[in-house]
């Protein structure tokens, strides 16, 4: 039997359709309840981490700057899956017990923070030096210039790549299953296991991830329009 016919037989089986329809809300529920919050909360926290780490490097703060480089070096040099495992088995040894969801949020934030810090740093360094000098010349101090001039301009530049990370994160959350977080993908696996009908359900969850990311892409477009480009015509 050729492959096309095989897929056709599986997908257009009456039972398959009923399974897909009945499991759709069950899978989506975990997407909305676990996957999206995990991604969005982690993304927000990681952006906060990134801004601090980027500012320390941009401002060449002694000691802290070295600590930041080491942080980025370690996080970027080890797999996310390994980091999750280290946290899952390591934190309880240190007496820190928390639920797996919180643990996943912490690991994702720290992980993404290292990457986004480099995005933010590059965006800050792309702001012309004259902007900083002009700020000094009207009497502003370093933090005032950061807040009013450098960070807003850098954030506009960093917005598309940061959103890229958010979209990446929505899919990476599936790794949280490795530390017992039942998120959208794990839920799908459970349903598939009960029905022994794996292939269509995995296609279904893929479609839901795609929908999530499509919505985010749309939000990114709107966000860029709202942020504007300070009158620069494209």
């Amino acid at each position: 039997m050729d492959v096309g016919l095989k897929i056709y037989t599986i997908m257009f089986d009456q039972n398959t359709w009923e399974l897909l329809v009945s499991s759709f809300p069950k899978i989506l529920e975990y997407g909305v309840k676990i996957t999206l919050p995990l991604a969005v909360i982690s993304f927000i926290l990681s952006t906060v981490v990134a801004v601090f780490v980027a500012m320390i490097q941009y401002g060449k703060v002694p000691v802290l700057r070295t600590i930041c480089r080491i942080y980025i070096w370690i996080i970027r040099g080890t797999p996310l899956l390994v980091q999750l495992m280290v946290a899952f088995y390591g934190l309880p040894l240190l007496g820190i017990h928390s639920n797996p969801f919180v643990m996943a949020v912490i690991v994702f934030s720290i992980n993404e923070g290292a990457y986004s810090a480099e995005t933010m740093r590059a965006a800050m360094e792309a702001v012309p030096a004259g902007q900083l000098e002009a700020g000094y010349c009207v009497g502003m101090n370093y933090m005032q210039i950061m807040w009013h001039i450098i960070l807003p301009q850098a954030f506009r530049t960093a917005f598309p790549p940061l959103f890229n990370s958010l979209i990446g994160m929505v899919k990476e959350t599936s790794l949280a299953s490795s530390i017992t977080v039942v998120e959208m993908f794990t839920r799908t696996k459970q349903i598939a296991g009960q029905s022994y009908n794996y292939f269509p359900l995995y296609l279904e969850v893929a479609a839901i991830y795609l929908i999530f990311c499509t919505v985010l892409t749309f939000i990114q477009k709107k966000g860029e329009a709202v942020l504007g480009n300070y009158g620069v015509r494209k």
Binding site: P128, G130, Q131, A134, G135, P152, Y230
Partner: peptide, 12 residues
């Protein structure tokens, strides 16, 4: 007060 050759107005 300082006036620069390249103006350096705050772009944002």
């Amino acid at each position: 007060g300082f006036v620069f050759q390249s103006y350096n107005l705050f772009a944002n």
